Computed example of a mutant assay.
Amino acid sequence: MTNKPDAQAFSHITDWVFDLDNTLYPHETNLFSQIDVRMTAYIRELLQLDHDDARKLQKQFYRDYGTTLKGLMEVHNIDPDDFLMKVHDIDYTWLKPDPDLAVTLKQLPGRRFIFTNGDRTHAERAASQLGILDCFDDIFDIVAADLTPKPAQATYDGFLQKFSVDPTKSVMFEDLARNLTVPKSLGMKTVLIVPNNFEPTFSEIWESDKGFTDEVDYVTDDIGTFLKSVL
């Protein structure tokens, strides 16, 4: 699935900005499910809840605060370092190395960044397992964002300022349309990554982002093929 881009439309791009989870690796890999389980377990232990109540609260925090971590910090004043360490203690071998994507990323003209609501350690481990870590100039993680997740305006402003990125000469790749609202308003090109053979009912209701489709310039279920088409 893709609305095929015109390579000329990307000829001015100097900075390529990528979300990590379900963007640089396929949604069907399901790596995030491990993190999801650990977040539920963290809340269950912290608040002595049963599994169902812990999961409901986890998703409520995600909806209301942008990340489960932000909600836990605001409401329960947890230690973010402890949370990030525990929920990212996962098996990265679920990710299949993608040497073809590595070759394509290195061919992109200009700088390449990972911009994630996860932490740097998670990003480095995932990108290393994929074989693409050395394709990137730097990583902007949730710690660099002062623990304020996308889609907060201040988080994008912090990223742009830190790396002196001109948004009118950059493109953002994301698996959540809501996280493309601010980039679009800043003048960035926006690309939504969806699961292979995506169906509207595929994602859970809070991940579908049906109200944010106007923020998306391009949609693809194959990031590697999309990038090759703009080279």
Results as ranks from 00 to 15, higher is better:
M1F: 13
K4E: 11
K4Q: 11
P5H: 11
D6F: 05
A9I: 12
A9W: 05
F10K: 00
H12V: 12
D15T: 12
D15V: 08
V17H: 00
F18M: 03
D19Q: 07
L20E: 04
D21P: 01
N22P: 05
L24N: 10
Y25G: 01
T29P: 11
N30P: 11
L31S: 08
L31K: 07
I35F: 00
D36M: 07
R38V: 10
M39Q: 06
M39F: 08
A41Q: 15
Y42K: 10
R44W: 02
L47C: 06
L47T: 13
Q48C: 14
D50S: 05
D50N: 15
K56D: 08
L57T: 08
Q58R: 12
Q58P: 03
K59C: 14
K59T: 14
Y62W: 12
L69Y: 13
L69G: 04
K70M: 08
L72Y: 11
E74M: 12
D81M: 09
L84W: 05
D89I: 00
I90V: 09
I90K: 08
W94T: 10
D98S: 04
P99Y: 00
L101N: 02
A102H: 04
V103L: 09
T104W: 04
L105M: 05
L105R: 00
K106F: 03
K106L: 01
Q107N: 13
L108F: 00
R111C: 03
F113S: 00
I114F: 00
N117E: 01
N117C: 00
R120M: 02
R120P: 00
T121E: 11
E124N: 07
A126H: 00
A127W: 01
A127I: 07
S128V: 07
Q129L: 00
Q129W: 05
L130A: 09
I132P: 07
L133N: 02
D134K: 08
D134M: 03
D137C: 02
I139F: 02
I139D: 03
F140M: 04
I142E: 02
I142G: 11
T148L: 14
K150L: 02
Q153H: 09
A154G: 06
T155S: 15
D157F: 01
F159M: 15
Q161M: 12
K162Q: 15
F163K: 04
S164C: 12
K169I: 05
S170H: 02
S170G: 03
S170K: 07
V171M: 04
V171A: 08
M172P: 06
E174Y: 01
A177F: 08
R178G: 06
L180V: 09
K184I: 03
S185A: 15
S185H: 12
S185Y: 04
K189M: 06
K189H: 13
T190H: 10
V191S: 04
V191F: 11
L192E: 01
I193W: 09
P195A: 10
N196D: 13
N196H: 14
N197P: 09
S203V: 10
E204F: 14
E204K: 14
E204D: 15
I205P: 13
I205D: 12
F212A: 09
F212C: 15
E215W: 07
V219C: 05
T220C: 10
D222Q: 01
G224Q: 13
S229A: 15
V230N: 03
